[in-house]
Design a protein around this nucleic acid. Structure first.
Lengths: 301, 301
DNA sequence: AGTCATTCGTGCATTTTTGCACGGAAAGCG
DNA sequence: CGCTTTCCGTGCAAAAATGCACGAATGACT
């Protein structure tokens, strides 16, 4: 019988299209991948990949088992979760993921506190863009901004999310004096006209598009324009003491159905350290409920 | 991510109940199994087996993943067959299985011929009792006596199977002279009264039960009683030249719906060497059609 | 045309895994 | 009660897998 792990290597190559990337994904040296797949091919007398210049390309034979391999992977993930779900130790690793702004401007001290409280637990933090797949155990606990998490995840909504329109003090002054077009800062991939613009700033123009919340804040602060942001972000930065000039306009946006959630896969319901982690950060966030729900905002009169 | 092969080890232990048997099934040393399962347990912080005196016993945690592991195994078997199904070489191994009597008294010379014709192919013969699982690739080609093979197997019916009632010459003489009860030799696990006994030998008694065809023949030859056997077996042994005294009674039994089939899994349809093997032994058997269909029998007048 | 970056294969040293042989503990047996 | 058998863990040597460093081939870019 074939070494089952070979299929894992096969999948990595099939997905990544070349040995080097596959090796990186698997966390091993590229020569290992190269040799294992060659051995697999020889053992079965089947060519699975064409060695083209830019990498490895699946043959027809490989396509035939690709779907099957994916199914096997799903099952292995299931097993992995199930095993992990019965881990009752308060030690070992936890993969934690959240948007990097929430980490940097809100939870970084709590992470430090968690580390101190549970020194036996190794936290691995993933804050890079893109959602981690909790089913694939890319992360065990996720802090996410979402309207309603998928049903296979469990966890709490720690707070609702309030948005506001933010502007730099100087810009606001200018806008009040001159009747110029209001400069807007929008999301890069929001192509339609947002509702809040239509309603409150019919006379406006797009000044800048960004794909990152902190960059949006930086742009507002630099006086490039006004922007709609979740309150927690500017409010945690622009305290009166810091001398910051970014403030919220007294415009009431409808309460978002989105919230800050602390989530993990249902299979990890009883995993001791995961539960502790979830509870810990749920508390942390709930203590900042006012921040997320916009009650810390400083308004322009 | 867990080494997928660990699940293979897990399954082997779960199934066999102890390390030693699992190791034998996996074809590795028992210490390897012992160490790998321990590593797996430590990595996940879960106890999977209780070390009891008589071996290893699944814990509740292990039962939880047992079903999943079985499904994974099935998928891996599927992949394995699919890969093998695209092997176009006329070299490598073929696992061949058949009832041991068919090998010994009919096909052994053909096996030798096949070996000679395809010296690059390594034949592994399995003739022990019990059907090999073709889906699990325990065997690639099977010669079987069956009425209708399962639909996931492909292959040909090489011949129909004719049965006859056989008896030793001396016994026959005795039976004709004295009006004693006819002594019967039956199968060990046939508890009901067979149809042929009811019809042709209402006045009879069970002399012996056996669970093996050659033993049945030996018993008939030794004069223990009469038996219903597929013709191929006694007819290939008791030629007039050998001076054997076992012959068939002139009783026409209904033609059996059973036949001699040469089979392999549908996924191996195009595997070159498997096809050659199937064709080769199909031919071999078809050349002996007369033998299987009872036309070589020598009758008592 | 030349430089650089990618991507892969291979020889060699290192690390990891495995097999082997031994020993201990418990159970079966006469 | 002593002997044998079964089953498991462990130290050590052998074998296998892996990582590392290098080089070749190809294509992109200046």
């Amino acid at each position: 019988m074939t070494d089952w792990d070979d299929i894992r290597y096969f999948l990595a190559i099939a997905r990544n299209g070349n040995i080097t990337a596959a090796a990186k994904a698997l966390g091993v040296n590229h020569s290992t991948v190269s040799r294992r797949i060659r051995t697999l091919e020889e053992k079965h007398g089947v060519r699975l990949f064409e060695r083209i210049q830019s990498g490895y390309e699946m043959t027809a034979a490989a396509s035939g088992i690709y779907e099957l391999a994916l199914e096997v992977e799903t099952k292995h993930q299931h097993i992995s979760r199930h095993l992990f779900g019965q881990d009752s130790r308060l030690q070992g690793e936890i993969n934690l993921t959240m948007p990097h702004d929430i980490l940097g401007y809100c939870l970084i001290d709590d992470v430090a506190a968690f580390r101190k409280k549970h020194s036996e637990i190794q936290l691995n933090l993933f804050v890079a863009k893109g959602l981690k797949d909790l089913a694939a155990r890319e992360a065990d606990v996720a802090i996410r901004l979402t309207a309603s998490p998928p049903e296979y995840l469990i966890g709490k909504k720690a707070a609702s999310l309030q948005h506001g329109i933010y502007v730099n003090e100087q810009v606001q002054a200018t806008l009040t004096k001159t009747k110029m077009q209001v400069p807007l800062i929008l999301w890069t991939n929001d192509n339609a006209q947002p509702l809040w613009v239509e309603e409150h700033f019919p006379s406006s123009e797009v000044a800048l598009r960004v794909d990152d919340l902190y960059s949006m804040y930086a742009a507002v602060k630099a006086g490039i324009g006004i922007a709609r942001m979740p309150c927690y972000m500017p409010d945690s930065l622009s305290s009166p003491l810091s001398g910051d000039t970014v403030k919220r306009l007294p415009i009431e946006l409808p309460v978002s159905s989105w919230g800050v959630w602390v989530l993990s896969h249902a299979d990890l319901r009883h995993t001791a350290r995961v539960r502790h982690c979830r509870d810990f950060f749920s508390d942390s966030l709930q203590q900042r409920k006012d921040l997320f729900e916009g009650r810390n905002s400083i308004y322009f009169k």
